[in-house]
Design a protein around this nucleic acid. Structure first.
Lengths: 193, 193
DNA sequence: TCAAAAGATTGAACAAGTTCAATAAATACC
DNA sequence: GGTATTTATTGAACTTGTTCAATCTTTTGA
């Protein structure tokens, strides 16, 4: 059940099996159906989660009603609104299941217990946060410097598995363009390729 | 000399004076003149730094020769290329002093020493990384959802002190627009205000 | 202090991306 | 299995932002 989580942790840091298992025991399993929300804007995010199977989109709804996708999370990825979770303030984000999914969730109290009693866990989250920060920094640079065509080509290359599982509407919301324009980009690529 | 650094650390976490001072002793002081680089693309980033005074821009040079500013760092801010520093790989970033500046630098070896021997330091960097990540996430959403006009107005409101110290070229490179277009935005704001 | 360099503004022509509306294709649901 | 709903494509008109070139202003450095 928690094998994927254990594997994921050991991929980030060296940790004793015992300490790792103690940590994993703090997680609770939850099933969530397609189109349901793990978190909605306005709520305080009460969990940090690990995706065992399925797929989520984490998005922000702007004042024009437009959905901006911050990231997608499939199996073996972590999900939370770190701002809302850490500072216990209302979230600005939605976390929606795009497929029937299974997640493992840890509460703030249990995570704090882990920080105090399992010394490696502080390092684990320091390293994971660093990695996601580096990835976001790259995406920021790409968004500043690259054209939508190129960002789409990058996306295809980076996440070929996701391509099959997402609609073009969702990919457009991630790239920051309209889906009509994405459609035109796709046409151009097909014609020139 | 290191008072600002000590203050900054204590603003993030509870830490004993002794542990904090031991950590601060690992930093070396460096003066750097305007227009000089603390880091250039291609180098491996050997430091994590704290700005005591002055101002830096951290930017990426894209293949068209365009400078995209990832962030500005003035006194009381931290600077590094976390990707290059952590993974000891060539940086893609430039860190340039925009004013004569004073920084405190810690090496990778000394930072690792701190992680092992000063337990609170792991927490310090976990929390700081989280905070910068949250800020970057907000900026990502803003870049996806807001028009350049609005991003400029947000910038003015958020960093009024920086406005005085930066050229419009630099602000444009941060906002991801040409400086000519920024000039037109500024004109529009003046005329309408 | 003054010449050179860097920064800022403006306009015109252009490119990138949006919006709206219509239609076709795929998917979901009873 | 067929209908309703969602998704994808296309075109035309429009808006946002870029590029280039010229001019003006400010800052820098010998």
């Amino acid at each position: 059940m928690k094998e994927l989580l254990k594997q994921n942790i050991s991929n980030h840091i060296f940790i004793s099996e015992n300490e790792r298992d103690l940590f994993c025991n703090l997680f609770e399993h939850k099933s969530i159906k397609k189109k349901n929300f793990l978190l909605e804007a306005g709520e305080i995010c009460k969990f940090e989660g690990f995706v065992v199977s399925g797929l989520f989109r984490i998005y922000h709804l702007d004042k024009n009603g437009f959905e901006n996708v911050l990231y997608f999370a499939m199996e073996n990825w972590w999900i939370t609104d770190i701002d809302s979770f850490t500072n216990e303030k209302p979230s600005q984000l939605y976390i929606e299941a795009l497929e029937d999914s299974e997640v493992l969730l840890i509460s703030k109290k249990d995570k704090e217990f882990a920080y105090i009693n399992l010394p490696k866990i502080e390092k684990l989250f320091r390293i994971m946060t660093q990695k996601t920060h580096v990835a976001l920094q790259r995406r920021m640079i790409d968004n500043l410097s690259k054209t939508a065509d190129q960002r789409y080509l990058d996306f295809i290359e980076k996440y070929p598995q996701l391509l099959q599982r997402l609609t073009n509407l969702q990919i457009a919301a991630y790239l920051g363009i309209s889906h009509e324009f994405l459609s035109k980009i796709r046409k151009k690529i097909v014609n020139s390729g």
